[in-house]
Protein backbone atom coordinates (compact mmCIF):
# COMPACT_ATOMS: atom_id res chain seq x y z
CA UNK A 1 0.00 0.00 0.00
CA UNK A 2 1.35 3.39 -1.00
CA UNK A 3 2.54 5.48 1.93
CA UNK A 4 -0.19 8.07 2.30
CA UNK A 5 1.52 10.17 4.94
CA UNK A 6 4.21 11.75 2.74
CA UNK A 7 3.05 14.72 0.67
CA UNK A 8 3.17 14.14 -3.10
CA UNK A 9 6.04 15.86 -4.96
CA UNK A 10 5.43 19.55 -5.61
CA UNK A 11 4.69 20.34 -9.25
CA UNK A 12 5.46 23.52 -11.15
CA UNK A 13 1.79 24.42 -11.41
CA UNK A 14 1.52 24.30 -7.67
CA UNK A 15 4.45 26.63 -7.17
CA UNK A 16 2.95 29.12 -9.58
CA UNK A 17 -0.39 28.99 -7.81
CA UNK A 18 1.23 29.52 -4.43
CA UNK A 19 3.19 32.53 -5.64
CA UNK A 20 0.04 34.00 -7.19
CA UNK A 21 -1.81 33.59 -3.92
CA UNK A 22 0.92 35.36 -2.00
CA UNK A 23 0.96 38.22 -4.50
CA UNK A 24 -2.82 38.46 -4.12
CA UNK A 25 -2.44 38.88 -0.37
CA UNK A 26 0.10 41.65 -0.70
CA UNK A 27 -2.09 43.37 -3.29
CA UNK A 28 -4.98 43.34 -0.89
CA UNK A 29 -2.88 45.19 1.65
CA UNK A 30 -1.59 48.00 -0.55
CA UNK A 31 -4.18 48.02 -3.28
CA UNK A 32 -6.72 50.36 -1.69
CA UNK A 33 -4.10 52.94 -0.75
CA UNK A 34 -2.32 52.98 -4.09
CA UNK A 35 -5.41 52.87 -6.24
CA UNK A 36 -7.24 55.32 -4.04
CA UNK A 37 -4.49 57.89 -4.42
CA UNK A 38 -4.39 57.13 -8.13
CA UNK A 39 -8.11 57.82 -8.31
CA UNK A 40 -7.77 61.22 -6.69
CA UNK A 41 -4.84 62.13 -8.95
CA UNK A 42 -6.79 60.99 -12.00
CA UNK A 43 -9.66 63.24 -10.97
CA UNK A 44 -7.31 66.21 -10.62
CA UNK A 45 -5.82 65.42 -14.01
CA UNK A 46 -9.21 65.27 -15.70
CA UNK A 47 -10.11 68.54 -14.02
CA UNK A 48 -6.95 70.17 -15.28
CA UNK A 49 -7.51 68.93 -18.83
CA UNK A 50 -11.17 69.90 -18.87
CA UNK A 51 -10.38 73.32 -17.51
CA UNK A 52 -7.64 73.85 -20.07
CA UNK A 53 -9.24 72.40 -23.16
CA UNK A 54 -12.90 72.12 -22.29
CA UNK A 55 -15.83 74.36 -23.20
CA UNK A 56 -15.80 76.26 -19.92
CA UNK A 57 -13.40 79.16 -19.75
CA UNK A 58 -10.71 78.79 -17.13
CA UNK A 59 -12.01 81.95 -15.58
CA UNK A 60 -15.11 80.08 -14.43
CA UNK A 61 -13.39 76.76 -13.96
CA UNK A 62 -9.89 77.54 -12.67
CA UNK A 63 -7.08 75.02 -12.65
CA UNK A 64 -6.77 72.64 -9.71
CA UNK A 65 -3.41 74.13 -8.80
CA UNK A 66 -4.94 77.60 -8.43
CA UNK A 67 -7.81 76.33 -6.32
CA UNK A 68 -5.62 74.18 -4.10
CA UNK A 69 -3.12 76.94 -3.48
CA UNK A 70 -5.94 79.32 -2.60
CA UNK A 71 -7.31 76.65 -0.28
CA UNK A 72 -4.05 76.52 1.62
CA UNK A 73 -3.47 80.27 1.37
CA UNK A 74 -6.75 80.83 3.18
CA UNK A 75 -5.27 79.39 6.32
CA UNK A 76 -3.32 82.61 6.83
CA UNK A 77 -6.36 84.83 6.94
CA UNK A 78 -8.18 85.55 10.20
CA UNK A 79 -11.37 86.24 8.27
CA UNK A 80 -11.24 82.70 6.87
CA UNK A 81 -11.00 81.19 10.31
CA UNK A 82 -13.74 83.50 11.55
CA UNK A 83 -15.93 82.18 8.79
CA UNK A 84 -15.16 78.55 9.52
CA UNK A 85 -15.61 79.22 13.21
CA UNK A 86 -19.02 80.80 12.66
CA UNK A 87 -20.21 77.81 10.68
CA UNK A 88 -18.86 75.39 13.25
CA UNK A 89 -20.31 77.35 16.14
CA UNK A 90 -23.78 77.41 14.64
CA UNK A 91 -23.41 73.74 13.76
CA UNK A 92 -22.43 72.78 17.29
CA UNK A 93 -25.14 74.84 18.97
CA UNK A 94 -27.80 73.67 16.56
CA UNK A 95 -26.79 70.05 16.96
CA UNK A 96 -26.72 70.29 20.75
CA UNK A 97 -30.10 71.99 21.04
CA UNK A 98 -31.84 69.65 18.59
CA UNK A 99 -30.26 66.55 20.16
CA UNK A 100 -31.30 67.43 23.70
CA UNK A 101 -34.76 68.52 22.60
CA UNK A 102 -35.17 65.41 20.46
CA UNK A 103 -34.08 63.17 23.31
CA UNK A 104 -36.36 64.76 25.91
CA UNK A 105 -39.42 64.94 23.68
CA UNK A 106 -38.68 61.46 22.36
CA UNK A 107 -38.51 59.90 25.80
CA UNK A 108 -41.65 61.73 26.92
CA UNK A 109 -43.71 60.76 23.91
CA UNK A 110 -42.21 57.28 23.61
CA UNK A 111 -43.00 56.35 27.17
CA UNK A 112 -46.70 56.98 26.80
CA UNK A 113 -48.87 55.04 24.39
CA UNK A 114 -51.49 57.78 24.49
CA UNK A 115 -48.99 60.48 23.59
CA UNK A 116 -47.53 58.39 20.79
CA UNK A 117 -50.88 57.91 19.14
CA UNK A 118 -52.07 61.46 19.75
CA UNK A 119 -48.98 63.12 18.32
CA UNK A 120 -48.59 60.80 15.37
CA UNK A 121 -50.32 62.88 12.69
CA UNK A 122 -48.79 66.14 13.80
CA UNK A 123 -45.29 64.68 13.77
CA UNK A 124 -45.80 62.92 10.45
CA UNK A 125 -46.89 66.21 8.90
CA UNK A 126 -44.17 68.38 10.41
CA UNK A 127 -41.38 65.93 9.74
CA UNK A 128 -41.26 66.00 5.92
CA UNK A 129 -41.36 69.79 5.76
CA UNK A 130 -37.92 70.63 4.45
CA UNK A 131 -36.27 72.77 7.05
CA UNK A 132 -34.95 75.07 4.34
CA UNK A 133 -38.52 76.15 3.74
CA UNK A 134 -38.20 78.10 6.97
CA UNK A 135 -35.31 80.15 5.64
CA UNK A 136 -37.39 83.14 4.50
CA UNK A 137 -39.29 83.15 7.78
CA UNK A 138 -36.07 82.96 9.73
CA UNK A 139 -34.68 85.76 7.60
CA UNK A 140 -37.65 88.00 8.31
CA UNK A 141 -37.78 87.18 11.98
CA UNK A 142 -34.08 87.32 12.84
CA UNK A 143 -32.25 88.92 9.99
CA UNK A 144 -28.72 87.75 9.19
CA UNK A 145 -28.08 86.60 12.76
CA UNK A 146 -27.18 83.34 14.43
CA UNK A 147 -30.76 82.83 15.50
CA UNK A 148 -31.95 82.51 11.93
CA UNK A 149 -29.42 79.80 11.17
CA UNK A 150 -30.19 78.01 14.42
CA UNK A 151 -33.89 77.95 13.61
CA UNK A 152 -33.25 76.16 10.36
CA UNK A 153 -30.72 73.71 11.83
CA UNK A 154 -32.72 72.86 14.90
CA UNK A 155 -35.99 72.30 13.05
CA UNK A 156 -34.35 69.88 10.66
CA UNK A 157 -32.24 67.91 13.14
CA UNK A 158 -34.81 67.77 15.91
CA UNK A 159 -37.01 65.35 14.01
CA UNK A 160 -34.14 63.07 13.10
CA UNK A 161 -33.11 62.69 16.73
CA UNK A 162 -36.74 62.43 17.78
CA UNK A 163 -37.52 59.56 15.40
CA UNK A 164 -34.41 57.65 16.44
CA UNK A 165 -35.22 58.18 20.11
CA UNK A 166 -38.73 56.88 19.54
CA UNK A 167 -37.30 53.74 17.93
CA UNK A 168 -35.01 53.37 20.91
CA UNK A 169 -37.75 53.69 23.49
CA UNK A 170 -39.88 51.23 21.53
CA UNK A 171 -36.98 48.78 21.67
CA UNK A 172 -36.92 48.59 25.46
CA UNK A 173 -37.33 44.97 26.30
CA UNK A 174 -40.79 44.36 27.71
CA UNK A 175 -39.71 41.54 29.96
CA UNK A 176 -36.91 43.61 31.42
CA UNK A 177 -39.35 46.47 31.99
CA UNK A 178 -41.77 44.30 33.89
CA UNK A 179 -38.90 42.95 35.93
CA UNK A 180 -37.95 46.47 36.98
CA UNK A 181 -41.55 47.03 38.06
CA UNK A 182 -41.54 43.97 40.27
CA UNK A 183 -38.17 45.00 41.64
CA UNK A 184 -39.73 48.22 42.77
CA UNK A 185 -37.31 50.45 40.93
CA UNK A 186 -37.91 54.16 40.98
CA UNK A 187 -38.43 55.96 37.71
CA UNK A 188 -34.94 57.35 37.94
CA UNK A 189 -33.34 53.95 38.51
CA UNK A 190 -35.30 52.47 35.66
CA UNK A 191 -34.19 55.29 33.41
CA UNK A 192 -30.57 54.73 34.34
CA UNK A 193 -30.40 50.94 34.17
CA UNK A 194 -32.91 50.08 31.49
CA UNK A 195 -34.19 52.90 29.35
CA UNK A 196 -31.06 54.94 28.76
CA UNK A 197 -28.77 52.01 27.87
CA UNK A 198 -31.33 50.71 25.37
CA UNK A 199 -31.86 54.19 24.04
CA UNK A 200 -28.23 55.12 23.72
CA UNK A 201 -27.30 53.46 20.40
CA UNK A 202 -30.37 54.85 18.68
CA UNK A 203 -29.83 58.30 20.08
CA UNK A 204 -26.20 58.33 19.00
CA UNK A 205 -27.20 57.22 15.51
CA UNK A 206 -29.65 60.10 15.43
CA UNK A 207 -26.94 62.53 16.47
CA UNK A 208 -24.55 61.16 13.86
CA UNK A 209 -27.15 61.56 11.10
CA UNK A 210 -27.96 65.04 12.34
CA UNK A 211 -24.32 66.03 12.33
CA UNK A 212 -24.23 65.91 8.54
CA UNK A 213 -27.68 67.40 8.10
CA UNK A 214 -26.84 70.27 10.43
CA UNK A 215 -23.89 71.20 8.25
CA UNK A 216 -25.84 71.36 5.01
CA UNK A 217 -28.72 73.23 6.65
CA UNK A 218 -26.39 75.72 8.27
CA UNK A 219 -24.51 76.43 5.07
CA UNK A 220 -27.77 76.76 3.14
CA UNK A 221 -29.05 79.27 5.67
CA UNK A 222 -25.79 81.20 5.48
CA UNK A 223 -25.97 81.18 1.69
CA UNK A 224 -29.46 82.67 1.49
CA UNK A 225 -29.84 84.73 4.63
CA UNK A 226 -26.29 85.95 4.86
CA UNK A 227 -25.47 84.82 8.38
CA UNK A 228 -21.74 84.62 9.02
CA UNK A 229 -20.12 81.46 7.86
CA UNK A 230 -18.82 79.52 4.86
CA UNK A 231 -22.09 79.81 2.96
CA UNK A 232 -22.06 83.53 3.29
CA UNK A 233 -18.41 83.70 2.25
CA UNK A 234 -19.19 81.79 -0.92
CA UNK A 235 -22.09 84.10 -1.73
CA UNK A 236 -19.82 87.05 -1.10
CA UNK A 237 -17.11 85.61 -3.33
CA UNK A 238 -19.69 85.16 -6.05
CA UNK A 239 -20.73 88.80 -5.79
CA UNK A 240 -17.09 89.85 -5.89
CA UNK A 241 -16.53 87.75 -8.99
CA UNK A 242 -13.84 85.56 -7.39
CA UNK A 243 -14.34 82.01 -8.71
CA UNK A 244 -11.07 80.67 -7.34
CA UNK A 245 -12.13 81.68 -3.84
CA UNK A 246 -15.50 80.01 -4.36
CA UNK A 247 -13.93 76.71 -5.34
CA UNK A 248 -11.48 76.87 -2.47
CA UNK A 249 -14.38 77.35 -0.07
CA UNK A 250 -16.20 74.37 -1.58
CA UNK A 251 -13.17 72.22 -0.84
CA UNK A 252 -13.06 73.68 2.66
CA UNK A 253 -16.68 72.69 3.16
CA UNK A 254 -15.89 69.20 1.92
CA UNK A 255 -12.99 68.86 4.34
CA UNK A 256 -15.23 70.11 7.12
CA UNK A 257 -17.83 67.56 6.12
CA UNK A 258 -15.30 64.75 6.29
CA UNK A 259 -13.96 65.89 9.65
CA UNK A 260 -17.48 66.04 11.07
CA UNK A 261 -18.37 62.65 9.58
CA UNK A 262 -15.26 60.96 10.94
CA UNK A 263 -15.63 62.70 14.28
CA UNK A 264 -19.25 61.62 14.58
CA UNK A 265 -18.39 58.02 13.76
CA UNK A 266 -15.51 58.02 16.24
CA UNK A 267 -17.74 59.47 18.94
CA UNK A 268 -20.37 56.88 18.13
CA UNK A 269 -17.88 54.07 18.47
CA UNK A 270 -16.54 55.43 21.74
CA UNK A 271 -19.95 55.85 23.30
CA UNK A 272 -21.17 52.46 22.11
CA UNK A 273 -18.04 50.80 23.42
CA UNK A 274 -18.68 52.32 26.80
CA UNK A 275 -22.29 51.36 26.44
CA UNK A 276 -21.46 47.73 25.76
CA UNK A 277 -19.29 47.44 28.82
CA UNK A 278 -21.93 49.15 30.93
CA UNK A 279 -24.45 46.76 29.47
CA UNK A 280 -22.52 43.84 30.87
CA UNK A 281 -23.22 45.14 34.36
CA UNK A 282 -26.97 45.55 33.96
CA UNK A 283 -28.74 42.93 36.08
CA UNK A 284 -30.33 40.35 33.85
Amino acid sequence: MKDMTAPPPVTETQVIRVVKAMRRDRRAQWGPVVLGTAGVLAFLLVWQLYSQFGPISDEFLPYPAQVLSQFFANFAYASFWASVGATLWAWMLGLAISSIAGLVVGVLIGSSRFLRKATFTVLEFLRPIPSVALIPIAALAFGPQLGAELLVIVYGCFFVVLIQTLYGVADVDKVAYETTLTMGMTWLQRARYLVLPTLLPYFITGVRLSATIALILGISAELIIGTDGLGQSVAQAQLNGAPVAMYALIITAGVLGIVINLGARAAERKVLFWHESIRAEVPA
Partner: peptide, 11 residues
Protein backbone atom coordinates in the same frame (compact mmCIF):
# COMPACT_ATOMS: atom_id res chain seq x y z
CA UNK B 1 -20.24 63.19 -0.96
CA UNK B 2 -19.04 65.06 2.14
CA UNK B 3 -19.40 68.41 0.38
CA UNK B 4 -22.67 70.03 1.49
CA UNK B 5 -24.16 70.24 -1.97
CA UNK B 6 -25.87 73.62 -1.54
CA UNK B 7 -22.50 75.31 -1.34
CA UNK B 8 -21.97 74.43 -4.99
CA UNK B 9 -24.93 76.47 -6.16
CA UNK B 10 -23.06 79.76 -6.71
CA UNK B 11 -20.31 78.01 -8.67
Amino acid sequence: RAIPSTIMIPV
